[in-house]
Design a protein around this nucleic acid. Structure first.
Lengths: 346, 346
DNA sequence: TTGAAAGCGCTAACAG
DNA sequence: CTGTTAGCGCTTTCAA
């Protein structure tokens, strides 16, 4: 009996008679043959049957960030439908060890929100497989992208706040660039941010307040390396200590905003009467807290990224998918309090 | 120049001179050679560099269940440390299509909480790679397992409730066996449960109440196919409608218990004065709600599973890891209300 | 240090 | 319907 016959027995049941196939499978079982080796098959067919996922953060962090899990859920959905596996590539974000990217047996990569010039990302680009980026980096040649219009979204948020009379605002943002920077981010650092998404969000906000006649140079922006509720809380404390006159804290993520809310609660600041707080993302926790935020379709982003990568049948399709966002006015934004009301407790 | 030299240039820099190596790499770049093909390398070295993960539920569900994400986080941590990828195997839980398991190029499988006789699990066992099970199924020969003592944990919970004077309790449990069953689960169904974890938890509870002289046959057990807060809520409504005299609702998961709490809140039942509610797992949401529950180290489970699979150096290691659990008495369990206090509003 | 040869396990042409 | 042949791209002895 030849190898072909056995191979056919497994892969193309219609190419041989049923009894013969049964005989083959029976013999295989008797001999303890575990079926075709998937790696050898992949080598031969030039198809790994899996999509690689590259994240900025440590793999384990992704499961703690609700926006990331939403994305993962959507991506997993798309992979399921296509019968493709999802390989989480184990990169140590601080380390520039790229072997994991080289070692990944995948048919393509999805890159989720990584820094410009990320070495792992560069390694991905060198691999001869298609790549789809979600969110960041932007404008990489030959690479499809799915994301939202961060600038426009934050512009809408800024206008909402300006309409409410806010003129003295503070901003909490996520990591802007290299280094474990925590604290105020001056305009130079803002301009040099290697995370386009943060850059865009700040730009949108700046534009909205420029319309209201607010000088951006006077707007304090505080950066946090870690993305967590705790980080948001401590950053808010810092921000308000330095600028007691602020009427609103604008955060570039819901997680940070939840930290701001926690600070407010612990310091008997009434939201929104004493302080307006806003977020970005629209994660479940934030919606439960009635946070004023920008909702973006995180699950759809994952699904779209997966589909872009897996359904490569049709050429000439859009190489960029921009999903819609929505300003959700919750219970944490209200009219700016009168200028004379100060709080010494900060 | 020979293949060996090129291979060495990539894999064993110490086997050739630095200048030669540079020359090779330079030439590779010039010729557009993307580096060694990971699949071919895997075939040759007989190492895929990835761990496969098999879940009961659809891949996408895993990201929504906090216990599962905790497990994933721990597993991802172990994989990171070992430099191994984590391949999420796309199985459609309802479908018995096993090809995804056959197709996965992995060095081993981690199986998370699947049913006995799950066809995907069977397919995993046929693969000639090591396998580690978390939670379920139990007692599979030649397969390592990490889990907790579900029976003992629930025994402790039952005793806690019995001490508080509860005698008329109702139980909400997760899927017990095949079929989309929703509603009361009689003793036959309980005994025939194909999910050992649920079986064990019920057994522990039964034992505790037997000690208190309660006949298990009189304890209503309601099953839900779906594992969600909504399911817990509707099951609680059903349970209390059929048994208005219950003083406690014992849930085999926090998610279900959160649903019970929601039902109580929406029906003006005071917890724990009118009704005691308990959960299982100790997920963050539940701890925030001060739920009385059993805390189990979900992250550690993931990490232990990964380590068991990846650190196969030492032989004669324990083939089973049983992690500790802890009864956490929160604010949702209190003394049973007096028998005469009934609620007609149910 | 470098090169030649062997083969990991499989599938896709093609010929019978 | 079945068998023969030829690689997929790599690493690893082993010899030069």
């Amino acid at each position: 009996m030849s190898r072909t016959t056995v191979s056919n027995a497994y892969n193309r049941p219609d190419q041989l008679s049923a009894p013969l196939r049964a005989r083959v499978l029976e013999a295989a079982r008797r001999l303890g043959y575990p079926g075709p080796d998937p790696v050898a098959r992949s080598l031969r067919t030039r198809r790994a049957g899996a999509v690689g996922l590259l994240l900025t953060e440590a793999l384990s962090y992704a499961f703690r960030d609700p926006a990331a899990t939403g994305f993962l859920e959507g991506l997993a959905l798309a992979c399921e439908r296509a019968g493709s596996g999802l390989l989480l590539v184990p990169v140590s974000p601080e380390l520039a060890d790229v072997t994991a990217v080289h070692q990944a047996g995948v048919d393509g990569f999805v890159v989720y929100s990584v820094q410009e010039d990320d070495p792992h990302f560069k390694a991905v680009l060198e691999r001869p497989v298609p790549t789809v980026v979600c969110d960041q980096p932007i404008g990489v040649e030959g690479v499809d992208r799915v994301g939202v219009d961060d600038r426009a979204a934050m512009l809408a948020m800024g206008r909402h706040l300006a309409e409410l009379g806010h003129r003295r605002i503070g901003v909490l943002c996520m990591r802007l660039g290299p280094g474990r920077h925590n604290g105020p981010a001056d305009e130079a650092r803002q301009a040099g941010a290697t995370y386009p998404v943060q850059r865009q969000r700040l730009a949108g906000l700046r534009e909205a307040f420029a319309e209201a006649g607010v000088d951006w140079a006077a707007v304090p922006v505080h950066e946090r390396f870690e993305h967590s509720v705790d980080a948001g809380q401590s950053a808010t404390a810092e921000l308000l200590a330095a600028h007691p006159d602020l009427t609103a804290v604008v955060c570039t993520s819901d997680i940070l905003a939840l930290g701001a809310l926690r600070h407010a609660a612990q310091h008997d600041l009434s939201v929104p009467d004493d302080l307006t707080v806003t977020g970005f993302d629209g994660v479940p926790e934030a919606m439960r807290a009635a946070l004023t935020t920008i909702r973006q379709p995180v699950l759809e982003k994952g699904r779209a990224a997966g589909e872009l990568l897996l359904e490569r049948g049709e050429r000439n399709r859009p190489r960029t998918v921009t999903l819609p966002t929505e300003l959700v006015v919750g219970a944490t934004s209200g009219p700016a309090r009168a200028p004379e009301r100060f709080f010494s407790g900060w």
